[in-house]
Simulated assay, not measured.
Amino acid sequence: MNDPFARLPEAATFTVTSSSVTDGAVWAPEQLGGKDVSPQLSWTGAPDGTRSYAVTVYDPDAPTGSGFWHWAVADIPATCTDLPEGAGDATGSGLPQGAFQLPNDARLAQYVGAAPPAGHGRHRYFVVVHALGVESIGVPADATPALLGFLMSAHVLGRAVLVATAETPGPELIEVSRLVPAPADAVFAVLTDPFGHVEIDASGMLMGAEGAPVTQVGDRFVVHMDREALGDVPLGRYDVDVVITKLVPGEEIAWTVEGRVGPHARHVYGYRLAPAANGTLVTSYYDWSQVSDEWRGRVTFPVVSQAALKATLGILERVVRRRSPAGA
């Protein structure tokens, strides 16, 4: 994992605390993008010889190749050991005399809150108080935080660090579409048939099925599975119940899967059908937004890829053609 201090000169450690965030915890809403309220900070135990401080907030996990600087404050007097929440507003009204903010990576001389891209995972935000052996680092007011870091690297006596986190959930749904040159009722006949599910499977997991064609929500049938095809969980061969969660004849069908032991994952597979010129536009979707934390800790979701959904649609067209009385 990227360590922003890995190649910097070693420095003594001291303590920084905050009423806004606890080390290792998620940012409060006030510190996120849109509200942009800088965190309250207090620090103690700086090394002897400290003559000023700098404060930075940096995200090394941003998808930029260089991280993202959210806040940089230079020339904080050695007599200051506290910044109130919101000190990093556009005017710097809460900063002590002589201190100033550099433009962050949004090119704003203020604190800008955390806003990781949706679906990019958990980001870390290194909140650092740097104890320096000089009263002024001599950095221009319009310089970048990276230049501040470079100029102060030779003067750092100590660092006080806490790490906050933030994550923006991504859309937990994938879907693909394909024009199938057949009427909707022909496509739907395959999707409501338990054996049709085995025929169109692109994963290689479905070995067989038992049950009658489904006609309403709550209907279910048994599918014989072989997880070895995915190579992710050593479950071997087992049976699951396919439980219909939505069924609108000729328009949409969706289902979830239940194993022999609960709790069930509650991910949903489905198809939507819409009339189109020369056939039916079929959309296959997979929704794992309702999967429990317990299951997320056991299995990596999504368990099927967008490519697998595309492959299933191609096989679906082939099965519909084969089942067609005209063989077209």
Score class of each variant (00 low, 15 high):
residue 108 L to M: 10
residue 187 V to Q: 01
residue 160 A to H: 07
residue 239 D to S: 04
residue 34 G to Q: 10
residue 115 A to E: 00
residue 60 P to L: 03
residue 228 E to Q: 11
residue 293 D to S: 14
residue 42 S to P: 00
residue 35 K to F: 14
residue 59 D to I: 01
residue 294 E to S: 05
residue 227 R to A: 15
residue 249 P to R: 08
residue 322 R to A: 15
residue 70 H to E: 01
residue 78 A to F: 07
residue 328 A to L: 15
residue 172 E to R: 12
residue 325 P to S: 10
residue 20 S to M: 09
residue 233 V to C: 12
residue 174 I to K: 08
residue 289 S to R: 12
residue 46 A to Q: 15
residue 204 G to V: 13
residue 231 G to Y: 03
residue 244 I to A: 00
residue 224 H to Q: 12
residue 31 Q to G: 14
residue 38 S to D: 08
residue 314 G to Y: 14
residue 270 G to K: 07
residue 283 T to Q: 15
residue 149 G to V: 07
residue 111 Y to T: 04
residue 220 R to V: 06
residue 144 T to I: 13
residue 208 G to L: 02
residue 180 V to H: 02
residue 80 C to W: 07
residue 84 P to I: 03
residue 7 R to Q: 11
residue 177 S to H: 11
residue 225 M to R: 11
residue 190 V to A: 04
residue 234 P to K: 01
residue 287 D to I: 07
residue 276 A to W: 07
residue 99 A to K: 14
residue 201 D to C: 06
residue 270 G to R: 05
residue 314 G to D: 15
residue 199 E to Y: 02
residue 78 A to L: 09
residue 21 V to C: 03
residue 169 P to L: 08
residue 170 G to S: 13
residue 16 V to H: 08
residue 237 R to I: 04
residue 156 V to C: 05
residue 51 R to V: 09
residue 58 Y to A: 02
residue 58 Y to L: 10
residue 283 T to F: 12
residue 222 V to A: 03
residue 300 T to K: 13
residue 144 T to R: 15
residue 106 A to M: 11
residue 25 A to P: 00
residue 238 Y to I: 05
residue 196 G to C: 07
residue 219 D to Q: 08
residue 34 G to K: 08
residue 32 L to Y: 06
residue 237 R to F: 00
residue 303 V to P: 00
residue 225 M to E: 08
residue 149 G to P: 09
residue 26 V to N: 07
residue 94 G to T: 12
residue 247 L to Y: 02
residue 33 G to W: 14
residue 110 Q to H: 07
residue 122 R to F: 00
residue 28 A to P: 11
residue 67 G to W: 03
residue 7 R to W: 08
residue 22 T to S: 11
residue 325 P to G: 06
residue 308 A to S: 10
residue 156 V to M: 04
residue 18 S to N: 11
residue 111 Y to F: 13
residue 249 P to E: 10
residue 172 E to N: 08
residue 88 G to Y: 02
residue 243 V to K: 10
residue 302 P to V: 05
residue 156 V to F: 05
residue 104 N to E: 03
residue 143 A to N: 11
residue 31 Q to C: 10
residue 300 T to P: 00
residue 107 R to T: 02
residue 210 E to H: 12
residue 243 V to S: 07
residue 210 E to L: 12
residue 158 G to K: 03
residue 66 S to F: 13
residue 13 T to Q: 14
residue 174 I to L: 14
residue 225 M to N: 13
residue 211 G to E: 03
residue 210 E to C: 06
residue 83 L to V: 05
residue 140 P to D: 14
residue 39 P to K: 01
residue 29 P to H: 09
residue 9 P to H: 11
residue 68 F to G: 03
